[in-house]
């Protein structure tokens, strides 16, 4: 694979790398060299496929009760066995990928766009807006993340819609701080000064010159943000504060399985494996993207 990629883009010089397209191919090449990143991306594509085509892939209806066949061990009929209501575990896991991926992406999209907008405004305009936004950010950071989420959901009532917007609400400060720090640095760059000298208005400078250049860290952070949201969703599901039964959410499935831990330890095993694989894949993908997009970034 490496060889074809190199042939497709024969060592381009530094000068042309400044232009849009060659830079994109440099990033793509750097990413494809990272095997774990590619593996993570491939695993996520498979997961996305299973989420999109769940009705075609799942062998059974994830909600169909069959009490006569409860707690079945893995077999050819039920590849991962059945749960306490005789529902097919594999089918439930496949449908569960829809919930986890959707929640993860929506939460990050919400938190990422709100945080980016506020970080951009605060960093560029400064003044009282900056002061206000950064104080709110600081206060949000003062809470242990999961504790705050649990408390708000306890008050609002447990359901998946509340989980989505509360996770978004608690996560935006992270993106705001990230974008603000980049905007502060970019604001003093020469090309921004030039744009201003040429009479560009603030809105144009922000949207055309500063925003595109501060998006790379946001993209990388989002890749790590989605698995965090998925883990939080699962933890809330486990505590009974997230998706409610009979929804086949992975954390809620572990929570149900916990009641039958003596009888059927498999019930808690499979959903955990699914969560770990998805989170691990996102982490690999994120590592790969960070290294490819920003070679100077420190690896921690």
């Amino acid at each position: 694979m490496n060889r074809t990629v190199e042939r497709a883009a024969p060592a381009r010089g530094g000068a042309s790398a400044v232009a849009g397209r060659p830079q994109r191919s440099r990033v793509a090449r750097a990413f494809l060299r990272n095997r774990l990143g590619v593996a993570g991306g491939a695993a996520l594509l498979a997961c996305l496929g299973s989420a999109l085509f769940a009705p075609h892939l799942a062998p059974y209806d994830p909600y169909r009760l069959d009490l006569a066949h409860a707690f079945q061990a893995p077999s050819w009929r039920h590849l991962l066995g059945t749960d306490n209501f005789g529902r097919d575990v594999l089918s439930r896991l496949i449908y569960g990928s829809r919930i986890s991926l959707l929640v993860g992406v929506v939460v990050v999209a919400f938190a990422g766009s709100v945080g980016t907008a506020l970080g951009l405004l605060a960093g560029y305009l400064g003044g009282w807006l900056d002061l206000a936004v950064m104080r709110v950010v600081e206060i949000c950071f003062a809470f242990p993340f999961l504790v705050l989420v649990i408390a708000i959901i306890a008050v609002l009532g447990p359901n998946i819609v509340n989980v989505v917007w509360v996770l978004g609400l608690v996560n935006w400060p992270f993106y705001a701080r990230l974008v603000r720090s980049h905007v502060l640095a970019l604001r003093r760059r020469e090309y921004v000064e030039v744009a201003r000298a040429l009479g560009a208005r603030d809105a144009r400078i922000m949207l055309r010159h500063i925003l595109p250049n501060s998006l790379t860290p946001v993209i990388v952070a989002s890749t790590f943000g989605v698995p965090q949201a998925i883990l939080a969703l699962a933890a809330l599901g486990f505590l009974g504060l997230g998706a409610q039964p009979p929804a086949p959410e992975w954390g809620a499935m572990v929570s149900t399985g916990r009641e039958f831990i003596f009888q059927d330890p498999w019930l808690i095993t499979w959903p955990g494996v699914c969560i770990a694989i998805v989170v691990l894949s996102f982490n690999f993908l994120g590592d790969g993207m960070r290294d490819a997009l920003d070679p100077r970034a420190q690896r921690v």
Binding site: F262, I275, A276, V279, N283
Partner: peptide, 22 residues
């Protein structure tokens, strides 16, 4: 180490409980 960051803690807890407790 990479696996450790990816495994949900509630699941790890139940697995340890299964192995060393039960």
């Amino acid at each position: 180490a990479v696996g450790g960051v990816s495994v949900p803690s509630f699941w790890l807890g139940l697995m340890l409980l299964l192995a060393f407790g039960l």
